[in-house]
């Protein structure tokens, strides 16, 4: 039995907007993670869920075309970024993974605390998005 193509205009239109909000919130969580709840892991999971919603609303082909890189590469890049932040402190003679932070004055934002841990979190973020999507797609792609 051939399934009819569902009429999901409402879903597609609303998801386009909603995913934007999810992306923004996940980005906020990612940046908030140093001293407050949030961080790369939870932000990454939320981003993954946003992408997943897109996969649900549209079909596989469309999204695969829209996201032009493979999620497994993303895991590799994320791991490399995370470990690179650790190695950077090694290069300056500190123990592995020593982190630094300082306060900077930006126009518009005011005083902002910037940390090297942010880059580590970026690595975690990429790994989580990549891993979550890889696992989900591994099951989803099978079902033809």
């Amino acid at each position: 039995m051939k399934l009819q193509k569902p009429n999901d205009v409402m879903l597609q239109v609303s998801m386009r907007v909603i995913t934007l909000f999810i992306f923004a919130f996940s980005f906020y969580l990612f940046l908030a993670g140093h001293n407050n709840p949030g961080g790369g892991f939870i932000g990454g999971l939320m981003t993954a869920s946003a992408i997943l919603v897109l996969y649900l609303a549209f079909d596989m082909k469309t999204i695969t075309k829209a996201i032009p890189f493979s999620f497994t590469t993303m895991i590799g890049v994320g791991l490399l970024i995370a470990v690179a932040t650790g190695i950077m402190s090694m290069l300056f003679g500190y123990p592995f993974l020593t982190h630094f932070f300082d306060y900077f004055l930006f126009p518009l934002f005011g005083e902002v605390e910037l940390t090297t841990a942010l880059f580590f979190d970026l690595g975690v973020y990429l790994v989580v998005v990549g891993a979550a999507m890889t696992i989900i797609l591994a099951i989803a792609e099978d079902d033809k």
Binding site: V77, L79, V83, F96
Partner: peptide, 16 residues
Amino acid sequence: ILPIIIPFIIGAVLII
């Protein structure tokens, strides 16, 4: 730390 991070980096590179 090197016996831990060398295989780690290589593993990550090999994923790519």
